[in-house]
Write a protein that binds this DNA or RNA. Structure first.
Lengths: 167, 167
DNA sequence: ATAAAGTTTCAATTATTTTTGAAAGTTTAA
DNA sequence: TTAAACTTTCAAAAATAATTGAAACTTTAT
């Protein structure tokens, strides 16, 4: 497998994974491309390599910037804008985990708390609803806390110890 | 909030979360409904509560069964089939984690391994591709291992210790 | 054997999401 | 200031995914 084949395979796999996780293909592929590019790329180059339109590139770059995993880069002497991905893999993981937690998990946890707090009228079905949503609340809350702590402190002793214990 | 409001809020939130994670709404909602139902439900009842067609109910129930989180239940004296969700929350989490790992993470890890194993031709871009995909490989592999171990042994001392350390 | 009850399948429809492309907007250099 | 270079926006089109509904299929009771 040569460079281009390997890069394209990575980009297309990353795009397919994104799709499976509710992230659109262009967004995931732009990220993949920037992540493995040693130099920042212009919008033109991104459009070219991925075969996507200007509008598509522009909108998805904006989303990636909102997510905090892509940056605009100014290259001296160049008029146009260049884009680069967050290059530190741990930092990338941290940002994605934080954002997904904030946008998706936390709101769900909030609803689970509300629903599990309804008054127990003594009926079987109400009891079951309260019990199950309470359990999901505990699970989601624990998982969310762990996730955030682990990615936050990827290099600390807790994680290292943990890895030794679990591997 | 009364029972029905609470249940419907839970079902609709679960459906929305599913959508965000690449799971279709009907599938996530059927699961939510069964998860909080004290008794197994017939396809008729599921269609009725969620307002979906017979075909939709049938296909999504099949998917849930393939995922291993919904079961067919035979009720003596009843001709039709009833459906029930896995009721143990830890077991549910374990099954989902295992399945997502198997279907999505493992294939991605495989590609990352392939791509990061291409021959280093000494160019900057090849070096970068190898380096970055290797880092992602390590991250994904570690995360996957941890996830599986943690959900596998939710009650054991490692996890308990871990929670104390991290909370 | 057969008909009623129940389930599955899948082509067609509907809904949703993504992408395009061109017009409008912005920035920069002269 | 102005015009070229570049970027953003968004309505329309295309692509994709979800859903329906009815025919085909299966099971069960008599």
């Amino acid at each position: 497998m040569n460079y281009q084949e390997a890069r394209d395979k990575f980009i297309s796999t990353w795009g397919a994974l994104g799709t499976l996780w509710g992230i659109n293909k262009a967004m995931a592929q732009i990220h993949a491309l920037l992540f493995v590019s040693p130099e920042p790329l212009s919008m033109e180059e991104i459009m070219e390599v991925l075969g996507i339109s200007r509008g598509n590139a522009s909108m998805n770059l904006r989303s990636l910037i909102e997510w905090g995993i892509v940056y605009k880069v100014n290259i001296p002497g160049e008029r146009k804008e260049f884009f680069a991905s967050e290059k530190d893999t741990s930092e990338l993981a941290r940002t994605i985990a934080k954002e997904r937690s904030r946008r998706e998990i936390q709101p769900t946890i909030k609803v689970l708390k509300e629903v599990s707090s309804i008054e127990d009228d003594g009926t079987k079905k109400t009891r079951e609803l309260i019990k199950k949503t309470k359990e999901l609340y505990d699970l989601a809350d624990t998982a969310d806390t762990m996730l955030n702590k682990v990615v936050d402190q990827e290099q600390n002793w807790v994680t290292k110890t943990l890895l030794k214990l679990l591997k």
